[in-house]
Amino acid sequence: MTEQTLLTAENLHLTFGETKALDGASLHVRAGEVVALMGPSGSGKSTLLHCLAGIMAPESGRVVYDGRDLTAMSDTERSTLRRGEFGFVFQFGQLVPELTCRENVALPLRLSGVGRREAHRTATSWLERLDVADVADKRPGQASGGQGQRVAVARALVTQPRVVFADEPTGALDSLNGELVMKMFIAAARETGAAVVLVTHEPRVAAYSNREAVVRDGRVREQEFAR
């Protein structure tokens, strides 16, 4: 265990009505590692991801990122952190349909104050890296599902985040396209040194991780991966 812990969830609890979504969930994510969160539907794995990413706040427990307590931050502080340090890939619906793929990838940079020309240049190089440069000037609706997800991966990585949160990133794709997305996504994340928290119910997707954590009834059973 040489890498340092970057992100920690400590004893998280969160209830939706009668349902205990998180019931004492804890997780450690080290810098640069890929952790797969697995578990049956309704086990709390997506809720845990949302809490880790500061999208949702737990009722009790702490989320600590790089020594900073996310649960104690203001909404503005959390948004700034998310924009600068985190990247997101979801199953679908994450690209702005009115913008071209290049503009979509450039968007996080533009929001962080990068000029248009430079943002577009960086976006283009990321589209090339994920082998979707040919859809750069198309709108997401004109790209295939697999291309769209690769554009989404480019957008998640364009700001060089330290953590990428991915919730069923290949959920809407067939095996071959899903595999291509995972291969390129994980290779790019490893190159940039980003840690990845990956929610998936597909074992073949989870197999791209360094280790898995099984979420069951709102708690986590971590499996260490000893190579």
Binding site: P203, R204, A206, A207, Y208, E212, V214, R221, Q223, F225
Partner: peptide, 20 residues
């Protein structure tokens, strides 16, 4: 079952790695 599952996934990682 979890122990077996971890073992299965370990081999799946190995195969995924070898494939790459």
């Amino acid at each position: 079952l979890d122990t077996q599952r971890a073992e299965h996934l370990r081999l799946m990682r190995e195969m995924t790695h070898r494939k790459a």
